[in-house]
């Protein structure tokens, strides 16, 4: 390993550089293909146009307000699913009977294609951010419940025994041993849940043509603004990737070396 560190940067990072290079070359090839008429520019606009459209999308489309709207919906849904999900998970962990009865249902909720029910939520909550938030909330709830149960149940027996040997009350046991021990797993649940929330928020915004970033794509597509549509899609993907990376970072940062 020692001699590996001595390698120059471009040797150590060769794979990553190759990946980026492949991306750049791919974009360049598309550019040429469009320029030489090998690809219909009304299907795939030249990447340079898309790049230029970025500026337009950012400047003219009120992007900050849209990001804010999406972020707001996502945060309300995400925070409520934590606030509701963790106690439910803790309760199901504590009561073997309830857990046995309902854990499968929560699992089914996690796998259920809730987004598909958007017409139903439209009827229930109207064409408003409420619909989006409620749907994202339900989508984000299951992973938190499941991960809370998993985390609490995964507490090492010997730590519980330490608590018992110190005659801890059951509430001390929960707050001082079970909960801190489960926290890393709960954080994983939160990361998964918030990822779900963002996907749902953006997806539903796009589907019902309401609100922030999802609607932006829909808008531009309906205007047949090709470079704009591509640019906005790239923009939304970049934002969500950034969001995932930040969540991952927070998750690992919140866990002191274990």
């Amino acid at each position: 390993m020692a001699d590996k560190a001595a390698l120059p940067f471009y040797m150590r990072r060769a794979p990553e550089i190759t990946g980026i290079a492949a991306l750049v070359v791919g974009v360049f090839v598309f550019e040429l293909m469009v320029r030489f008429g090998l690809v219909n520019r009304y299907i795939i606009p030249p990447p340079s146009d898309v790049l230029l459209a970025f500026e337009r999308v950012i400047v003219e489309e009120n992007i900050l307000a849209r990001c804010g709207e999406t972020a707001f919906e996502m945060l309300v849904a995400g925070v409520s699913s934590v606030v509701v999900g963790v106690p439910i998970g803790a309760f199901l962990y504590r009561s073997a009977l309830w857990r046995r009865a309902l854990e499968d249902w929560v699992g089914a909720l996690a796998a259920a294609p809730i987004v598909l029910a958007f017409p139903l939520f439209l009827v229930l909550f109207g064409r408003s951010p409420k619909t989006i938030i409620v749907m994202a909330f339900f989508h984000g709830l299951a992973p938190i419940i499941l991960k809370t149960i998993e985390g609490l149940a995964g507490t090492r027996k010997v730590l519980v025994n330490v608590g018992r040997s110190l005659n801890m009350t059951s509430s001390q046991m929960f707050w001082k041993i079970l909960f801190p021990s489960a926290l890393p797993v709960i954080f994983t649940g939160i990361r998964l849940s918030w990822t779900f929330c963002l996907i749902t928020v953006v997806g539903v915004e796009f589907l019902i043509n309401l609100g922030g970033l999802g609607q932006l794509i829909n808008d531009l597509a309906e205007r047949y603004d090709l470079p704009g549509t591509y640019a906005s899609i790239c923009f939304v993907i970049l934002v969500s990737v950034l969001f995932f990376i930040v969540l991952e970072r927070i998750e690992s940062w919140l866990q002191p070396a274990r």
Binding site: E16, I199, G203, G214, I217, I233, V236, I237
Partner: peptide, 23 residues
């Protein structure tokens, strides 16, 4: 080598909302 070159793209693109690619 290929894993390090390309897997991050797949990994980080996978949880993006796919439906927005529909247009």
């Amino acid at each position: 080598f290929l894993m390090r070159a390309f897997e991050p793209y797949i990994y980080y693109l996978s949880p993006t909302p796919r439906i927005i690619l529909f247009p």
